[in-house]
Design a protein around this nucleic acid. Structure first.
Lengths: 323, 323
DNA sequence: GGCCGGCGTTGAATCGATTAACGCCGGCCC
DNA sequence: GGGCCGGCGTTAATCGATTCAACGCCGGCC
């Protein structure tokens, strides 16, 4: 009541700003877009800015997109609901993009094409092996793929390095018989983790029969009940790690006393588990930041690398060293 | 090359469809919007539909929103990155909304106002106690709040009923000394879970000194080492449950033999934990569906209830019954 | 003094869909 | 036979920002 900006008032438009500043909408637009290629006197510029400020002007992204092509919207696409790590990366991306003035449109499932002009770019999240809309593949829309291998611009966590560091950690604790519960070799992550593991154990000069590669729970129980068994296991994911914990308990082994366990990609809860899991993790912000940066370089028509690695970190918890 | 729809071709517009069908854009618009209140002959209708089909027409949501107000976009707002259960609900919502033709714009953090006209509705996710933009509070935008208590349309999981059912489960297993590791009473969920617990144990006629309410790990260890200790604990969340498991092991108690444990809201990993956690859970799809339905009723200007409860289910796992 | 060029600014077209308002035509009722 | 009504469609205005073509003005240069 006391204020002109009642809840009924329509949105402030560029025309309102221009009127208050005493200029045309064209000038106002130029000023607010901060365009260097058109010359506007400092005085005019200031008038427009202060008018926009006074009126609490918020530019209508829809109208801008309709005309100019820059929707300032990014589609975050995942063929199915992201879980655990991917979920966090997705949210981190939205947060980051938001603070940079970009909206993130979430799209789960649904194979339809992406409407052209609707999005400035697309982020594909965890679509390993899933068929992707053709527009993404031909590069006609800037896109980044997180954890997948289908498109020309991919972001991966450094699984190879992570596995290496995990093994080095175990070596430094004195372990000489280290097993690897490997993930599906159909996924890049599975391959890289195995590769990093093998690389590190070979470099350390461990004999192959002391470094069993395990592919399922049956192999695992065989390995743990063998005469000479591994004293440490690198599990390819949190599920595999809990499998190891279960088997260890079943075999009467204490963790980390008789058996040390390192996991990958654990959920938040892993921290409060008993024992809490030492794990190779990646900061979601880092992955999100890399993806966003790659998109922005594509906006600027720069060439981008086909693959970008995000460093992982080893978080040491109670499953390798006694608390 | 062989096809007219080369990658260079601009988007198909409504005008293109109308031209092919031999009608005006208005007619085409009416047909494609499936509007019952304007009369279009069946023949015309069919021509337009098939033309749209042939051309692979995808309507430009931006333009539609700019004009009509119906952006067919919903903002999913969370003051911070959603975790665990909320994350799943968010994704489930996006999936559901997407299959209904609504886009979901993810907005994490950032306190700015929501641009009017940009969104048809807002879903607030897990903003318990967090200050909300004023537009949401005055009801000038259709909105639904999930797990929060600030706005006029809230969706909650049935914590009261869930706690009751969990207690009934424990009673049916023969437990007569049941403790509750309660959550913060500043949250509605914490209050309701406690209320459900108390309600059920009173109804069962258990004496108060057999049903301790525990507020922190210190209380917990006291309770577990007492002369007569609880034989079962209802934990208010997964973290609390892992605390209980840890303490139990520390006190030399087996689970579920000496102590049964029921949790709330466990992450996916809880299933593969050792022991896996019996828990009161809510299906993310159900919460998402309720939120979406409430929004759509608001679009239709219907009156909606201030609070909607989504039923929870008790998933029995190894922490209460021996596998 | 006249002409040229650049600076600062403006008018108007444009993006694509929606929708209010109106036009046409044939049939029905009085 | 005239008036009215209802079914079918169309014309054109509109949403808000962007951007191009153009224009007035001023100073400098020949």
């Amino acid at each position: 009541m006391s204020d002109a900006t009642s809840s009924k008032s329509k949105a402030v438009t560029l025309a309102d700003v221009a009127r208050l500043a005493g200029v045309s909408t064209a000038t106002a637009s130029y000023v607010l877009a901060n365009r260097a290629d058109v010359s506007i006197s400092a005085a005019t510029r200031a008038r427009v800015v202060s008018a926009a400020d006074d009126l609490r002007y918020r530019r209508n992204a829809l109208a801008a997109a309709l005309r100019g092509g820059a929707a300032r919207q990014i589609a975050l696409y995942s063929p199915h609901r992201p879980s655990g790590g991917f979920a966090n990366i997705g949210f981190a991306f939205a947060e980051l993009a938001g603070s940079g003035g970009l909206s993130t449109v979430l799209r789960i499932g649904g194979d339809e094409e992406f409407a052209p002009g609707q999005f400035d770019g697309v982020v594909v999240l965890g679509a390993n092996g899933h068929p992707l809309p053709s527009r993404l593949l031909d590069g006609s829309v800037p896109s980044v793929e997180i954890g997948g291998t289908a498109t020309g611009c991919q972001v991966h966590e450094d699984d190879f390095g992570g596995a290496r560091r995990a093994v080095e950690h175990l070596l430094s604790l004195g372990h000489r018989r280290i097993g690897h519960y490997a993930g599906p070799q159909s996924s890049l992550a599975g391959q890289e983790r195995l590769r990093g593991f093998l690389d590190a154990v070979h470099e350390a000069g461990l004999r192959m029969d002391a470094t069993p590669v395990i592919h399922n729970d049956h192999d695992l129980s065989t390995a743990l009940s063998a005469a000479v068994r591994p004293t440490a296991i690198l599990a390819h994911c949190d599920r595999a790690a809990t499998s190891v914990l279960r088997m260890a308990r079943f075999a009467g082994l204490t963790v980390p006393g008789d058996l040390a366990v390192v996991a990958f990609d654990v959920e938040a809860m892993a921290e409060s588990m008993e024992p809490s899991l030492t794990a190779v993790q990646v900061a979601p912000e880092l992955v999100a930041g890399a993806a966003l940066a790659l998109l922005e370089r594509q906006f600027a028509r720069e060439q981008v690398p086909g693959q970008t690695l995000v460093p992982t970190e080893l978080v040491v918890r109670a499953s390798t060293v006694q608390g």
